[in-house]
Computed example of a mutant assay.
Amino acid sequence: MDRIKILLKQYQDAILYTIFGGLTMMVNIITFWLAFQILHINSSASYLFAWFWSIVFAYLTNRTWVFHSTAYDFMSIVHEIFQFLLARAATALLGFVIFYFGVNLLKQDAQIWNMIQNVFVIISNFVLSKWIVFKKKAR
């Protein structure tokens, strides 16, 4: 039991990120589906719509429950949000390239390629969030 507690503590960030990353992916998939299937917005605009709502959800959950941000003054929070958005923009570009490749070049299903790109984006987002955006400051 002690070994399990040690492992849970050691991998707490990854475990929580997996949970909230999964929820973020669900936000992305649901909002993409709503925009693409219900509102009949084209696939690229639906992708951007889903990306926006995913990053809002991800920032709030990552800041609070995953990485326990210590940024509390205005400028620190602004800097953190800027880094978060910059990292998310970079991974969104990666996701869009993967999505574009599957949907527009290979002519395959947009829903499936949206899920595929999400896997790559979530892993990239974890690395950038842990090592750059929410990196613990030495005191």
Rank of each mutant, 00 (worst) to 15 (best):
Arg139Glu: 13
Ile38Thr: 11
Lys5Tyr: 10
Asn125Lys: 00
Ser76Ile: 05
Phe52Glu: 02
Phe52Asp: 00
Val119Met: 02
Gln108Val: 07
Leu23Glu: 04
Ala90Glu: 03
Leu16Val: 02
Ile29Pro: 05
Tyr47Lys: 01
Glu80Cys: 00
Leu86Thr: 12
Met75Thr: 15
Phe101Cys: 10
Tyr59Trp: 08
Gln12Asn: 12
Thr24Ile: 02
Leu106Asn: 09
Val133Cys: 03
Gly95Ala: 07
Ala138His: 14
Trp51Gln: 08
Asp109Thr: 05
Thr64Ser: 06
Arg63Asn: 08
Phe57Ser: 06
Trp113Arg: 01
Ile81Arg: 06
Ala110Tyr: 07
Asn28Val: 04
Ala35Thr: 02
Arg88Phe: 11
Val133Tyr: 03
Asn118Tyr: 11
Arg63Lys: 15
Gly95Ser: 09
Ile38Met: 10
Gln108Leu: 15
Trp65Ser: 00
Val27Gln: 02
Met115Ile: 15
Phe134Cys: 07
Phe120Gly: 15
Ala92Ser: 10
Leu39Gln: 01
Ile116Asp: 02
Met25Pro: 02
Thr31His: 03
Thr61Arg: 00
Gln117Lys: 05
Ala71Trp: 09
Thr91Asp: 03
Ser46Glu: 00
Leu60Thr: 06
His79Trp: 11
Asn118Val: 08
Leu93Tyr: 07
Asn125Val: 07
Ile98Ser: 04
Ile77Ser: 00
Ala50Ile: 00
Leu106Ala: 14
Gly22Met: 04
Tyr72Phe: 14
Ser46Val: 00
Tyr17Met: 05
Lys5Ala: 07
Leu105Asp: 07
Asp2Arg: 12
Phe126Pro: 02
Phe32Asp: 00
Phe57Thr: 09
Asn114Phe: 12
His40Val: 09
Phe84Leu: 01
